[in-house]
Simulated scan of single mutants.
Amino acid sequence: MDNQLSSRIAAEQPAVAARFSAAYRNHRIGHAYIFDGEKGIGKHEAALYFAQLLLCEQPSENVPCGTCSACKRAASGNHPNILTIEPDGQDIKKDQMAGLLSVMTKKGYESGRRIYMIDQAHRMNTAAANALLKFLEEPEGDVTAILLTDAYHMVLPTIQSRCQRISFLPPQREQLLETLKAEGVSPSLAATVTSLTADSVRAAELAADDQFVSLRKTVVKLVQAIDHHVSDALLLIQSEWTPFLKEKEDTEMGLDLLLYMYRDIVAKKAGLSATPAYPDLDEFITSLAMKMTYDQLSSILESVLQAKKQLHRNMHRTLLMEQLVLSMQEGLFVV
């Protein structure tokens, strides 16, 4: 299992694997890293692999053996020198961070490096981020932090500057597209789900999810309504968007779909040849690209990104979508 993990990291992220090996070989292990890449790219698996390498009892050629006690316990989540936290509800809170840092600085652990992982690090609230920042400024002993994020721009710049950034490249999208189409997924739906995730399993799950397909259709209707009249868009939020506002994850998915729709419009306007997220809407997207300016598109994209931030701050979801529609409508008046 662990050798398979090593092979997978080497095959899918060769630059990342090479960087791990070089750091280990040269005894230049950093005290903090940010693993940055889109959802489903394998950041968590890479963090586990790196932790195994740092704790392995008998590494070979700068690769963890996968069979020693340390490697096995790391793989099973039972190594006492590895701790992980993730958002508690909407965000990562100060008490979570304080508890983690307190445990990591206490004595009594096994010898060797201690490693803490912060999943979805961009969702630390201000107090949690400040607590981490203080620790990063004054690292103690052989401790390594690994922050995982798919929204690097949302991590505080002061934290970014104190961490080594390791960027994960997405897999060849065309290959994933062909795999999904071979499994019977329509080309248009395959294009949409591969815009949202690089994980082949997750992409197939989304494509088979009737609610996701319905959400995609509703997003298209919303863009059409915004293009027509703001009152139509607001009415659509009250009617057809309601089922998707019950869960934060569904709302976030809708915002992502909206974001990719407007990115398609920007790409069409700029004459880019990248595979669109909505290839079945080429005529409509072309018409919007012809009549919208870059400033208008930039304003709308910024409004959607701001809505994503507000979503994680517990803003009422119906109100958030209504304000987004009004903000997007205002963006159309940008000269």
Score class of each variant (00 low, 15 high):
Leu301Ser: 11
Leu176Thr: 07
Glu12Ile: 01
Asn62Lys: 04
Ala98His: 12
Ser273Cys: 05
Leu132Met: 12
Gly30Gln: 09
Leu101Ile: 09
Ser6Gly: 06
Ala22Gly: 00
Ser231Leu: 09
Ser167Tyr: 10
Ala127Glu: 12
Leu245Cys: 09
Val143Ser: 03
Met321Gly: 09
Val304Ala: 06
Arg162Ala: 02
Pro139Leu: 01
Leu311Pro: 11
Lys43Met: 00
Leu288Trp: 13
Ala23His: 13
Gln160Tyr: 00
Asp250Cys: 05
Ser327Ala: 15
Leu189Thr: 05
Ala198Leu: 04
Gly66Ser: 07
Val335Asp: 11
Leu101Met: 13
Ile146Met: 05
Leu189Ser: 04
Ile92Leu: 10
Leu257Tyr: 03
Val230Gly: 08
Thr197Trp: 00
Val155Gln: 07
Thr192Asp: 03
Ile82Tyr: 02
Glu252Asn: 14
Gln164Cys: 01
Gly66Tyr: 03
Asp210Gly: 00
Lys93Phe: 07
Met292Lys: 12
Ala10His: 08
Gly40Ile: 02
Tyr294Trp: 09
Asn62Ser: 14
Gln175Pro: 00
Cys71Gly: 13
Met1Glu: 02
Arg113Ser: 07
Pro276Glu: 09
Ala277Glu: 01
His27Thr: 09
Trp241Gly: 12
Pro59Cys: 00
Pro187Met: 02
Ile300Thr: 10
Tyr278Leu: 14
Met292Leu: 14
Ala131Asp: 02
Gln160Ile: 03
Ala203Asp: 11
Pro276Tyr: 05
Leu258Phe: 15
Ile285Leu: 07
Ser214Thr: 07
Met154Lys: 15
Tyr116Ile: 01
Lys291Arg: 15
Gly42Val: 01
Leu83Gln: 14
Glu57Asn: 04
Ser327Tyr: 12
Tyr33Pro: 01
Gln329Met: 02
Ala267Trp: 13
Gly42Pro: 03
Pro170Asn: 03
Gln96Leu: 03
Gly77Met: 07
Ile92Arg: 02
Ile29His: 01
Lys269Ser: 12
Met104Trp: 04
Asp209Cys: 12
Leu54Pro: 05
Lys217Cys: 03
Thr251Ser: 12
Pro64Gln: 06
Tyr33Gly: 02
Gly254Asn: 11
Lys246Thr: 10
Met154Tyr: 08
Phe168Leu: 08
Ala47Thr: 07
Ser200Lys: 12
